[in-house]
Nucleic acid binder design. Structure first.
Length: 473
RNA sequence: GGCCCCAUCGUCUAACGGUUAGGACACUACCCUUUCAAGGUAGCGAUACGGGUUCGAAUCCCGUUGGGGUCACCA
């Protein structure tokens, strides 16, 4: 049987980093087996529905290189892939369960239920729904008369349900502690439990790899599979990504939108690499690896279960590493340019831009760092820091001479410029540390910059001489 | 609170009964050096606690503590 995995996000907001995380593992398990990876949209909650969310989820997956094989946007043999478009299906399956005695219509109002719940809580047991014991014929008559009803799963009163999760020991749940979950809401929409199980079955899903928060509802799903007479999929519950305080990762405490990371100028490769190390380590201790390598060595059973804290500092380190050591300078320049263009920059992708990029690669971790650190490359109106001004004022008399020499330097490359400075310093009996800082301050307006010869060579003779003259008395 | 999951440096983790408990991020110092980075070297730093089992426990068992998840006509 071919492996089929899926992610089933709800279109309720920004494309979440947790979806990307779970997507990575589902994608990989499918790819390893030459199977299929499906993106299904679980939009049965019309109250929380966000219109463009689905498209943005899809774009996130594409950006990361985790493009699904089947999805609402691409279609596929098991469509439709939006639960709202599969509406009719669920009612039929729910009724099938009622007919087979595995489910029943229930007439309790929300108010009655909350009263029941309070009483049950006080007594320390699970809620007992009165409708469960209604005569089926009488219940049918009430439904026919148009009385509002939901359909609930008839959970066995005794025995236990065991979840066999590939990542942990068998988990035992006493059936008496599982309440009769709603399968079909009064508005005819299915709940997550029904829709999820029916769709996974119909789409041939073999491996359910999802977040740990679903563990407690897994026995319900297993009971459903059994009620339908279907075989269970393989279960694997991944640890939850955490905030620094160890709580489940949340918007309030951590950026969770992948779009945010995109806008900061993170690379998808770095994000993927980082995410892969949340709960898993490369067996050879390798820190930097790509999707293909991950696919080659990943094994589900090696996933570690402690809730990993999503540490942005480490993500940034990965990103810097990709900039410096994985991508070519040319590739970085191209991507940086595209990034800046998306931020409304009009800088052309020319040799000058490429040269500046090369100088900045070891000096930025994410693309968003770039403009702040390179103002003086693009404008004559660059800010001059106090320290820089002091450096200029302290050695102002050197500048005209230096400017003249630079103007007449036969070739204006880093090596020649470096030689010029060494010669100048020796001639004047000065240390390089006395000569270079004022020049740096004058041409960059800051004391923090790439090394001076390369900085000057990149800026070019014309700019350098003009700036030096301007700073000189 | 009931049920469920989890537990090695601050963080991500290695170890799969025998190691001076290893690596990475972060942090600190030093080196390189014209500044800032990058890079190199070193340092700091952990088996939550208590009982067992065993010649031997981070590793197996039990308890405690701690953290997390879940208890909707949301997913």
């Amino acid at each position: 049987m071919s492996v089929v995995t899926r992610i089933a996000p709800s279109p309720t907001g920004d494309p979440h980093v947790g979806t990307a995380y779970i997507g990575l593992f589902n994608f990989t398990v499918a790819r390893q087996a030459g199977g299929t990876f499906i993106l299904r949209i679980e939009d049965t909650d019309r109250g929380r529905y966000v219109a463009d969310s689905e498209t943005r989820i899809f774009q996130m997956m594409q950006w990361l290189g985790l493009t699904p094989d089947e999805s609402p946007l691409q279609g596929g043999p098991n469509g439709p892939y939006r639960q709202s478009e599969r509406f009719d299906l669920y009612g039929d399956y729910a009724r099938q369960l009622v007919a087979s005695g595995h489910a029943y219509p229930a007439f309790e109002t929300p108010e009655e239920l909350s009263a029941l719940r309070e009483a049950a809580q006080a007594a320390g047991h699970v809620i007992a729904v009165p409708s469960r014991d209604l005569d089926p014929v009488a219940a049918q008559a009430r439904m026919d008369a148009g009385e509002a009803a939901v359909i609930r799963l008839k959970v066995p009163r005794d025995g236990e349900t065991v979840v066999n999760d590939v990542l942990r020991d068998p988990i035992h749940f006493q059936n008496a502690e599982i309440d009769d979950k709603v399968l079909l809401k009064a508005d005819g929409f299915p709940t997550y439990h029904l829709a999820n199980v029916v769709d996974d079955r119909l789409m041939g899903v073999t491996h359910v790899i999802r977040a740990e928060e679903w563990i407690t509802s897994t026995p319900i799903h297993i009971l459903l599979y059994r009620a339908f007479g279907w075989p269970e999929p393989v279960w694997a519950h991944m640890p939850l990504l955490r905030n620094a305080d160890k709580s489940k990762i949340s918007k309030r405490k951590n950026p969770t939108s992948v779009e945010w990371y995109q806008q900061q100028g993170f690379l998808p490769e770095a994000m993927l690499n980082f995410l892969a190390t949340m709960g898993w380590t490369h067996p050879d201790g390798v820190e930097i690896f790509d999707l293909a390598e991950f696919q080659r060595v990943f094994r589900l059973q090696d996933v570690t279960l402690g809730g990993p804290v999503f540490d942005q500092a480490k993500l940034r380190w990965y990103n810097g590493k990709y900039l410096r050591e994985v991508l070519s300078e040319d590739e970085v320049a191209r991507r940086l340019h595209a990034f800046l263009a998306s931020q409304k920059s009009t800088l052309p992708l020319d040799d000058y831009f490429r040269a500046v990029t090369t100088l900045m690669i070891p000096r930025m971790e994410v693309f968003n760092d770039f403009m702040d650190k390179t103002e003086y490359f693009w404008s004559e109106d660059y800010a001059v820091t106090e320290k820089a001004q002091a450096a200029i004022d302290g050695a102002r008399e050197l500048l005209p001479d230096l400017a003249a020499r630079l103007k007449n330097l036969p070739t204006f490359d880093a090596e020649s410029v470096g030689g010029l400075f060494r010669a100048f310093a020796e001639e004047r009996g000065l240390k390089l540390g006395k000569v270079m800082p004022p020049v740096r301050a004058a041409v960059a307006g800051t004391m923090e910059s790439p090394d001076l010869p390369n900085l000057l060579a990149t800026l070019g003779r014309e700019r350098v001489v003009a700036r030096l003259m301007r700073a000189a008395p």
